[in-house]
Amino acid sequence: MHEYSVVRSLLRQVQEIARSNGGGAIETIRLAIGEFSGVECTLVELAFRDLAPEKIGRQAKLEIQNIPLEAKCENCQQNIIITNYQFCCPRCNSQQVRITAGDELTIIDIELREVGVNA
């Protein structure tokens, strides 16, 4: 339950990015959240709704891209989707699987309103 601190950090970082790109109002933030990132999307959205208006304005929207947990089998090289956290290759049963996606928490991009244009 550290989504509030995640969102606080997100807002700090996007403010910085907006400032160094002309300072236009932030319209949209696209965030990738992996299934294994340790943060819960619903709680991130709640925290965003709570914290964002004061920090970056009411216009700002958050778009979350959910990333499933994926891995590569080190034994048979198969790319696999991990379900129910069973780290096991369905093809060869090997447990030597390396996570390739699903633990990320990444700011993909942000959309800024052109400076001088009113909404």
């Binding site: 995640v6 950090s9 997100l10 970082q13 990015i17 907006a18 790109n21 002309g22 236009g24 319209e27 949209t28 965030l31 990320e104 928490l105 990444t106 700011i107 993909i108 991009d109 942000i110 959309e111 800024l112 309103r113 052109e114």
Partner: peptide, 13 residues
Amino acid sequence: MNQTITVNRDLKA
């Protein structure tokens, strides 16, 4: 026109 800034940065980098 809105401007899209590509970031692709780990939030916890």
